[in-house]
Design a binder for these strands. Structure first.
Lengths: 341, 341
DNA sequence: CGTTTTTCCGTAAACGTTTACGACAACACA
DNA sequence: TGTGTTGTCGTAAACGTTTACGGAAAAACG
């Protein structure tokens, strides 16, 4: 079962060097011997031992995906990440690369896990998610010169790594556009705290659209909260306290929207009737909620595949003929109109 | 940055053997030299190279989690697996083990991915999910003598591997119990096809409970379908065609229940009013659906941790003092009573 | 003081690959 | 025939560890 390159060599009475070259498609091996080697490999059920390969080549052929949980989040952004992970894994598999998933507790612990991966060279590169505006993981990786790519932008690290993000700014902008077109002028925005970068991007788009429509930005209509249901539940009433109540709310997270709707229900306010609700980013939860929530949806699986490509293109060892180059892409979201706005 | 054991040895002017023994806590090394080695290791920022270690020890210190998608399922059982994966990963991390996630396309392809992991020795053991009644992955792994554990039981492979499962039989039983207590006698059961083992277990419990209550099992009230929303949508009407319509339906999957409810809605039948609906297994979707679906909920994160423990205990290399032993556990579900029954 | 035991360390092999280098034969060419 | 070229292969080192083995010095013992 555990046949090595030595077994093949002994079996064929040739040297291990020739066997290796034959298997790796090198030019300097006779066509006939190559055929014999490949036959023997099939016969003896040979597969190269990855540990031996990794050691010699200095590359593990595996990529680590680091999932940093939001503070207070038990669910790791579920179900946002599964389709992304699916796409990422699919593309990596095409390059014969494995995917390592590293989670870890919220906060500091993730840094330790990251260091471990980097220092013990358990992976050739790292994919980061849940990027913060200032992200110490990015600082660490840039400083260490370890290859990585991010799902989400950050202000850390400069232009040294590939990144792929959703266009939260445009989604915030379009959400306001849509609401204004439907007659709303008092539009609230609820977003996550904790320096998550997309919260800033969303708010930029929100503000820009308001100004374009000549609507003054009212700080009393903007609130930050924990990025989970409890956070939405807790923070939504704050925005409704204004004596000039908003007629619409844009939630920058699905879980927060769910919690917010619960709070609204307790206040006797019905989304879709008494108030308009739009969610950025859509998940299956939005669809099955009652009323079904109008939401902006990203293409997560293609994004996963794309980020894998971008990361690979930035790795000298995997890139095509052209040298390594850093790319940044921002993908649009699609509006899924439902009942809540 | 990439300091090796040789660097330490050179720096301290001792041999690499001694350095290695010092780092690994061997007894035959002077207390003073050990201290000097550990200091130098910190100073030179040394971490052992995992590839070197793997090669020498014949163990990669990583476990592969194989997620076999259901046929026609784009979502990999989302969001069922995230909490399980979280628990699994957490416990493995405590043992300094990495988690590799392998997905692959539905069907045959998964076998290839599995062979690759096993033959190239990319992982020390494998965790299987979505077990079939007859599971060729289990057959393959047993025959190959490769260590593994499963989430879910199977008829394949005998008693040679640890397994952890939810008590679907009891959940089916209790669901019937609850419905009968509420006056129902015509109770339908909708479960996934494709040989998924839990569908059989569920039906066993369903039948047992019916018989206990003196209710004849009506084959016209049992239907199999694809394990997704479309499957539930397609198959539910079949059960409603009976001239003696059921007054309750137990769905053996959340997505199928969602699709089933859509079909019911189109027939003008309201869950929670005109018909009782119970779901096995609960996901967040059940909670936010309208009406909120009564469902049985497993403890997925603790289950992930537990299965990691069971797997590790069966591995000679990681077990405590006692030898390897195979365990099987079946965990109960908790009924979450909501509005649909 | 001689012998045995203990303590500590260095040497070298091994894990399974890949690859730089050189050797040798066959062949081509002048 | 001598020289250069090409094709094919073997040798051996290297990647970074761990560990069996033996040896030297120190300690213990008679």
């Amino acid at each position: 079962m555990a046949s090595s390159i030595h077994d093949l060599a002994r079996h064929l009475n040739i040297s291990i060097g020739t066997v290796s070259r034959a298997l790796n498609g090198r030019a300097d091996v006779n066509a006939d011997t190559r055929k014999r080697v490949l036959e023997a490999a099939r016969e003896l059920n040979y597969s190269p031992n990855q540990s031996g390969r990794s050691l010699r080549q200095g590359a593990t052929r595996s990529i680590a995906f680091m999932l940093q949980p939001h503070p207070g989040d038990q669910q790791y952004g579920e179900p946002f990440f599964i389709p992304f992970l699916t796409g990422l894994q699919a593309r990596l598999a095409e390059y014969d690369l494995d995917l390592m998933v590293v989670m870890g507790e919220p906060g500091q612990y993730q840094q330790e896990r990251l260091r471990r991966v980097v220092e013990t060279r358990r992976a050739d590169a790292v994919v980061l998610a849940n990027t913060r505006r200032e992200d110490d993981r990015i600082d660490y990786l840039s400083k260490a010169g370890f290859p990585f790519a991010t799902l989400g932008r950050s202000q850390s690290g400069g232009d040294t790594y590939p990144s792929l993000d959703i266009d939260f700014e445009r989604a915030g902008d379009e959400a306001v556009d849509r609401l204004v077109a439907r007659g709303h002028r008092r539009i609230a925005a609820i977003r996550p705290s904790h320096d998550l970068n997309f919260g800033y991007l969303f708010l930029d788009g929100y503000r820009k659209a308001l100004r374009r429509h000549g609507i003054e930005v009212d700080p009393g209509l903007i609130a930050d909260g924990f990025i989970n249901e409890a956070g939405g539940y807790q923070v939504t009433p704050r925005v409704m306290l204004s004596n000039d109540r908003p007629t619409a709310i844009i939630f920058n997270n699905d879980a927060m929207a769910l919690g917010g709707c619960k709070a609204l229900a307790e206040m006797g306010i019905r989304p879709g009737h008494d108030i308009a609700v739009i969610v950025i980013v859509d998940t299956p939860l939005c669809r099955y909620f009652s009323p079904a929530l109008t939401a902006f949806r990203p293409s997560l699986e293609p994004m996963g595949r794309r980020l894998a490509e971008m990361l690979l293109a930035s790795l000298p060892a995997f890139a095509g003929e052209e040298g390594p180059h850093i790319m940044h892409e921002v993908w649009p979201l699609e509006l899924i109109a439902r009942e809540s706005d």
